[in-house]
Amino acid sequence: MIEVNNLTKRFGDFTAVDNVSFSVNRGELFALLGPNGAGKSTTIKMLTTLLKPTSGKLKLNGLDVVKDPDAVRRSFGIVFQDPSLDTDLTAYENMELHGIMYGVAKKELAPRIEELLRLVELWERRNSFVKTFSGGMKRRLEIARGLLHHPKVLFLDEPTLGLDTQTRHLLWSYVDSLTKEKAMTVLFTTHYLEEAESNAHRIAIIDHGKLIAIGSASELKKSTGTDSLEQAYLELTGSEIREEEVDAHEAWRSIRRARNMR
């Protein structure tokens, strides 16, 4: 359903995604794991027509992503890692706009919106402006919106970031039923390894833009001789902190330094 062949993306002379190849089968729940800055979101952006690859081939639902972006857009849905709501509209209006853009039939639209807003427990707040929502509520709305139409391929980029445990469980059981009942293909990223371990059929691990391992959770554990996915992951990616996090630490330290000087 998804085919990635020798995919590379450079920003200037920095290589964010480095010759990555993998494929995802129809109905599969596939996890893309890796430390901060590994290139997960960049890979998803290329698969979803938002970025052009520097080189390599990308196919989705049998269609060439670069050559035929319009047809490809009809085949997938996505929940972005970064915010993507119109905060000047209400929750309901955001859902409605999305449904209409994805061509959800008129008589299906209202019941579908109600079902999903109830699922994420935002139905009572449907007429509130999104700018009045908490971070987690916005995230729940984005999840509901991503599930509103039923695409062949669904991308979830850190969908559970900032979500409470209840909503995380709801999300995964809903996604699981979609893969089973509609044979929907799902590619997701997460930093909660237990989510990948208990939900993903297969897992790919990338680091510094390179694919370093791929297989089911038990295969990854076996090949590294570890007994949890977390240990296998640390074995594969090493335990040093990545650039971005170091930067965050550095920033935090300089803030404190500035405070102490006062």
């Binding site: 319009d70 857009r73 993507s84 853009m101 994805y102």
Partner: peptide, 17 residues
């Protein structure tokens, strides 16, 4: 503004010309 608030991405991946 849509680009800065992130909503632009949403409109750029929809299956609408």
């Amino acid at each position: 503004i849509d680009r800065q608030f992130g909503f632009l991405k949403e409109t750029l991946v929809v299956p609408v010309s």
